[in-house]
Simulated scan of single mutants.
Amino acid sequence: MEPESRQPQPQPPQPPPPPVALGTGAVARRLGVSPTTLRSWERRYAIGPDRRETGRHRRWTPEDIARLELMCRLTAQGAPPSEAARVARGIAPAGQPAADPAAPGPGGPRALRLGDVRPECRGLARAAVRLDAPAVEDLLAAVLAELGPVTAWEEVIAPTLHAVGRKWASAGERYVEVEHLLSWHVSAALHRIRPAPDQLAGPPVLLACTPGEQHSLPMEALAAALGERGLPVRMFGAALPVDALREAVRRTGPRAVVLWAQSRTTADTSLARAVAGIEWGPRGARGHAALLLAGPGWGAGSAAQPLGTERLFGLRSGLAVIESVAGLQTPGRAPERASAKAPGTAAGRAAPAACGS
């Protein structure tokens, strides 16, 4: 009698492997945001990981990351981070079902008239009107990181500043606090943009506002864009006195000087002629800078533009003019020209009515 053949015994099912939990740095790289942003969201909006390891290290599970991905999508569509976090966590106020904060709602008396703009612009405007400083800061950081200073300025920041300026101009002294808060955070965000480490050698581009001109945000945007391209720049800010401007030109020997004037009262054509005539260096080898006039104060008539100067219209096209007249070109980068949307969104052609404190 043959022995019974042994049948293989079925093995018990193996438990699925535990989900892989990632650290904050890995999650930030996956989502395309900075680790500082993730920590800020966790602190401000309670959208942190469900678990921590010994030593208080954050470990993000797939569920945690899914919530972050939803929050990133909503903020990119223009939702304030506080509302996006509430939806991502599945929480709605007063027990109501969570709604998509990016969905358009009734305008209301405080709404800004923005027209056809990017969703990020609407989100920034809503946060500014609510005086939600953390949301304004987060939205500005996100659009500058994603779009770069040129597109972020022309398609998100400048349209919002225009809308705020129109709002308070038509409402008496109301909404001035909105303009001041938004301008301060825009300036701070632009100053945080680090210049390219491999800057071109040679004389810089000098940026300054005319004496008496306090509106410097467009020049700050230009400084950030030039620095990002590795072009050397010296920024002197608002209301530079006449003697200080002349001394700065002589001491730096710039390739180009950009003078910003917001209104006709600050656009001094005699000053422009004087700056255009400044020379430096030894006899026989004197140099002088190209003078570029920026801002609506210079007007469109030939009488308002001294001979030998050139006007800048918009940030993107202005960069191309600066690179051309100053003989500058970033290696590997073709000169940028104004996009099809430039006439409607150019920062230089129609600067915000009030863009500085």
Rank of each mutant, 00 (worst) to 15 (best):
D116H: 06
L161E: 11
V150Y: 01
L114F: 07
P197L: 14
D198G: 12
A163D: 03
A201N: 13
P149A: 02
V143P: 08
L231R: 09
S216L: 08
A225E: 01
A133E: 15
L181M: 12
L182A: 08
H185W: 14
D100Y: 06
H180C: 11
V178Y: 03
L200M: 11
G202A: 12
A142T: 10
P134I: 15
R118F: 02
R194V: 15
E177T: 14
V136D: 06
A163L: 00
L139F: 01
Y175M: 13
A196E: 13
A135H: 04
D116S: 08
A99H: 06
M219G: 00
V176I: 14
L200F: 07
R122P: 02
D116P: 08
P218I: 10
G165M: 08
G115N: 06
A158Y: 01
L231P: 02
W153C: 11
L181G: 03
A225L: 06
E177K: 07
P195L: 09
V136L: 05
G212W: 14
G227N: 00
P211G: 06
V205R: 00
L161D: 01
V156R: 02
V143L: 03
P104S: 06
V186D: 07
H162F: 05
L147R: 14
L200D: 00
E220N: 05
Q199L: 15
R126P: 01
I193Y: 00
D132F: 09
E179V: 03
P195A: 11
R229C: 03
C121R: 06
A208S: 11
E179I: 05
L140F: 03
P204L: 11
C209T: 09
G212Y: 12
L144G: 00
P203V: 15
G212A: 14
L200P: 00
L161S: 10
E179N: 04
L182H: 05
W184I: 14
A103Q: 11
Q199P: 10
R126S: 11
P119L: 01
S187V: 14
D116R: 13
P218T: 10
T160C: 13
L190F: 12
C209H: 10
R130S: 05
A221Q: 04
G227K: 03
R113H: 14
R130Y: 03
A145H: 04
W153D: 12
A196Y: 09
P134Y: 12
A102L: 02
A171M: 10
M219E: 01
L200T: 10
I193R: 07
K167E: 08
Q199C: 14
P195H: 12
M219I: 04
K167M: 09
G123H: 05
A221R: 03
G172E: 12
A225Y: 02
A125C: 05
Q214P: 00
E228K: 15
A141F: 05
G107K: 11
A188K: 15
L114A: 08
E177N: 13
P218C: 10
V150W: 01
Y175G: 13
E146F: 11
L207F: 07
T151A: 07
K167C: 07
T210I: 10
V178G: 02
R130W: 06
L231I: 15
P195G: 10
Q214M: 12
D116N: 03
G165D: 07
A127L: 05
G123F: 09
V150S: 01
G165W: 08
A103H: 09
